[in-house]
Design a protein around this nucleic acid. Structure first.
Lengths: 353, 353
DNA sequence: CTGAAAGCGCTTACAG
DNA sequence: CTGAAAGCGCTTACAG
């Protein structure tokens, strides 16, 4: 069933049907009513492939989500969809694998659907450098920085990863911990090349917290690399527990990893926070439901979403790209214990105090 | 950039370019090489809207996922994508809100993309009854039953919800529990009308477990209704703990709800399983990472995915619709305690023993 | 093996 | 206010 059927049955031409369907003015009330009645009767829906093909510019935005299972992103996407709809615009969401090229996908979306603007949830610096110049519509990268990328149509809204990690690590240090394992993402190394990926930034933050207190972080020894997954966190925590006897705390670079680590700690017969303290990162909903509740760096999902959408609309109206940092918050759960005071009960068993 | 540019630059006609792009036979090696070189050079990608519009039947399958945040579905989808790709076919995945009409979406997908077949992850009986007759391609509903729907092109693969819940409840009963709260989804009532939604089936299973042991379940008193979410589970558990003093166990109709309940129990200063036993449902990855590990009914995601895809391929080859039940498994975590033996420590505080 | 042409279902100037 | 027609970027019979 096509617009032709509607035209035939209503007695009007396809052009008129199209105008009614798109709410254009300059159609008689009689035509509108008749055509809408037929549309209803036939339960007609326009073929969106044909619409897309024809339209030179769509009136909707697109969100490109890198990682179907990323719970932080899931929350932000929902909020963004709401905000864009509230602004009277429409959105489509494209979900990609963790490791597919989001910029290549964006290029394709732009060519085919000519969206008003693009919102990236998560992004790999390399992909942007390689392919983003082909993206011509206003875009905002959310949760990662894009200021050093230098594209005039690419804004960014993100949390300061270095500061966030520094705060998190600082919290552990101030609680008296020194034997602190770190569970980081891959390429989580303090390399001289500035790759600026999230894991690396957070590791820099960790080091900064040590340096600020006149201490030095031995990353070589204390970092375990992992995927951003439950299993990854579990494995990495196990590795740290094996490799670093006497470890009193673990900093995980995501809540999901932390939840994996929590389980690993328990499986060794240890408790959180009595034996090992634990901090996460992201502040996803789950973190507040853990037992014990996770201490974590909460990224402000609502605000990331809101600013992302605001900036995109601003750019779509001709505004310049901006790069914004949204404040984070250290959420105090029950997963960190202070070991600054002597703890006699502990001392008996603990060979390191 | 379009196929025309490629044609021009390569010196061949668009038809020939199209044939090369689609790997059709009957093209000279010279033409193929030249054209592919130009495609590479221009980084050309065909416009999929135009392809879709033109093709009378696409060669790919579609998966319609109801609920972006459903972790059970997320696992099944990934597996299905893998299986379909391994079978040399392509897939697109459409993610829908929890409460949007998946059948209406499917009708639209069929009209526009004419997929070889459709896989539904989750589905509402009402939506199928109302709209599925417009879907003409082979389809499989996964995780819900479709045998009583009577559509000749709709198969189903699911877990026996009644048996699963009966097993779960039976486990609690056999452990000596009688004061068992139930956290169920909405419309979780033992109505005379057979709605066959998941919550209702599982509640029937709960009752069956009681009846099989010569007991009677007072659903009115022991059921709390909730959304399938962490927060829902948290609230419902709180409600049960308030309403039912002396409750020794909670059966949640999903792991996510159970994780919410776990937190609610702890927030009252109670422990799982010492004070309250807890069972979940679904067997999502998270359930194995809880502290304590959740006892749950594990739906066999791999097998649901595999059989779903197998059956769809079978139907796409002209086979008839089938309705299959895939076995579940009771996973023993650490969240259930047996109270069959007298427990002196407990008796002192427990007014009900 | 290759090209010219029709047509998928729409939208949108252009006339009237 | 309405219709006839061009054309979006492809694919696919149909000739040659």
């Amino acid at each position: 069933m096509t617009i032709k059927d509607v035209a035939q049955r209503s007695g009007y031409a396809v052009g008129t049907v199209s105008r009614v369907l798109n709410g254009h003015s300059g159609v008689s009330e009689a035509a509108r009513e008749k055509i809408l009645a037929v549309v209803e009767e036939l339960n007609f829906r326009p073929n969106s492939a044909a619409q897309v093909l024809k339209q030179r510019e769509s009136s909707s935005f697109a969100i490109i989500v890198k990682g179907t299972r990323n719970l932080l992103f899931a929350g932000i996407v929902e909020e963004m969809q709401r905000l864009i709809k509230d602004a009277g615009r429409s959105v489509s969401v494209y979900y990609l694998d963790e490791d597919s090229d989001e910029v290549a996908a964006a290029v394709q979306v732009c060519r085919e659907r000519k969206p008003l603007g693009l919102l990236f949830l998560g992004g790999d610096r390399g992909n942007f450098l390689r392919g983003f110049r082909e993206v011509t519509c206003p875009s905002v990268l959310v949760t990662s920085r894009a200021d050093t990328l230098g594209f005039p149509n690419l804004s960014s809204v993100s949390t300061d990863d270095v500061e966030g990690a520094a705060r998190s690590m600082g919290h552990l240090l101030d609680a008296g911990h020194r034997r602190i394992g770190i569970i980081g993402g891959d390429s989580c190394v303090l390399s001289p090349v500035k790759e600026c990926n999230i894991s690396q930034m957070r590791l820099m933050g960790c080091r900064r917290a040590w340096v600020q207190r006149g201490l030095e972080l031995d990353a070589e020894r204390w970092v375990a690399v992992s995927r951003y997954s439950l299993e990854g966190g579990y494995e990495a925590a196990g590795e740290l527990l094996d490799r670093c006897p006497g470890m009193t705390a673990i900093l995980a670079m995501s809540d999901v990893m932390a939840i994996g680590a929590l389980r690993a700690i328990h499986d060794r017969g240890l408790r959180v926070p009595e034996d090992v303290s634990l901090v996460g990162y992201d502040g996803i909903e789950q973190s507040a439901y853990c037992v014990p509740r996770l201490t974590t760096i909460r990224q402000n999902a609502e605000r990331l979403a809101r600013r992302g959408v605001d900036i995109l609309l601003h750019q779509a109206n001709g505004g310049e790209a901006v790069h914004e940092i949204v404040p984070f918050e250290l959420v105090y759960g029950d997963s960190v214990r202070s070991i600054r005071e002597a703890d006699p009960a502990r001392d008996e068993e603990d060979p390191f105090s």
